[in-house]
Computed example of a mutant assay.
Amino acid sequence: MMVRGIRGAITVEENDRKEIILATAKLAERMQEENKYHPSDVSHILITTTNDLNAAFPAVGLRELEGYELVPVMCAQEIPVPNSLEKCIRIMATVNTNKQQHEVQHIYLEKAIQLRPDLSLTKD
């Protein structure tokens, strides 16, 4: 068993509480599905948002998923680099897994695909 970081990102259209929460849950579920881990395998999760998203804590979306009640989660704000991708939520999950580094599936959805097209899965 090895500790691995699994990355993901998703964008939303509006700074809207419901949209932020649903997008965060969608991303987390997809990360878990593609990498075949369980919430009990997760050491901790860091979620960041761009500074144009402040209508909700994205961690609320995670808390609504079964099994994530005890996973330590922290939210932070991304560095506001000029001309960077807007309305973006990023997740870094630290997970115990048997996967090798090259087997980890990092998930980029919606407009966030442009952040790392080399790591993005083509199906959405």
Rank of each mutant, 00 (worst) to 15 (best):
T94S: 14
I47L: 13
S120G: 13
N96E: 10
D41K: 01
E34N: 07
M92P: 00
N35P: 07
S43V: 14
S43Q: 12
K87E: 02
L22I: 01
S40C: 05
A55F: 01
N51I: 01
L62R: 00
L62K: 01
A25C: 03
H38A: 11
N96V: 11
R63D: 13
A23T: 00
E34F: 12
I107D: 15
T97D: 09
L65P: 13
P80L: 01
I91G: 11
H106M: 10
C75N: 13
L46V: 08
Q32G: 08
E69C: 03
K36W: 01
D41M: 01
I79S: 14
D118R: 06
L85K: 03
E29T: 03
S40N: 11
Q114P: 09
M31T: 04
A23R: 09
D41Q: 02
Q32T: 09
P80A: 00
E19G: 00
G67F: 07
R90W: 03
V104M: 10
N54V: 02
N96I: 12
H44F: 13
L53N: 02
Q77S: 11
M31G: 06
A112D: 10
Y108M: 10
L119H: 13
A25V: 00
D41L: 02
I45N: 05
I91C: 10
K18E: 08
E19W: 00
I89E: 15
A93V: 04
I113T: 15
E29M: 12
E78P: 15
E69M: 06
N15R: 01
V42H: 08
P39S: 07
V42A: 06
V42R: 10
H102A: 11
Y108E: 11
L46S: 09
E66W: 03
L85W: 04
S84P: 03
K99E: 12
K87T: 00
C75Y: 05
T49Q: 10
A55M: 06
K18A: 04
P117A: 12
L46H: 11
M92W: 12
A25T: 00
Y108D: 08
P39Q: 09
T24M: 06
L53Y: 03
Q77K: 07
I113W: 05
I47S: 08
L119Y: 13
C75D: 15
S84V: 02
N83P: 03
R63T: 01
R90E: 14
E69P: 14
T49S: 08
I107M: 12
P82D: 12
E19M: 00
E19L: 01
L65A: 08
T24Y: 07
L70C: 05
P117E: 15
K87D: 03
E110T: 12
G67I: 02
I107Q: 14
I91M: 15
I20C: 02
H106W: 10
P58N: 05
A112I: 10
Q101L: 11
V81F: 12
D118I: 06
D16A: 00
C88V: 11
N96W: 09
E64Q: 14
D118H: 07
R17A: 15
T97H: 07
E69N: 08
S120H: 11
A112S: 11
Y108W: 14
P58D: 07
V104C: 08
Q114W: 04
I107F: 14
Y37I: 03
V73Y: 05
D16K: 01
T49M: 13
H106P: 04
P82E: 14
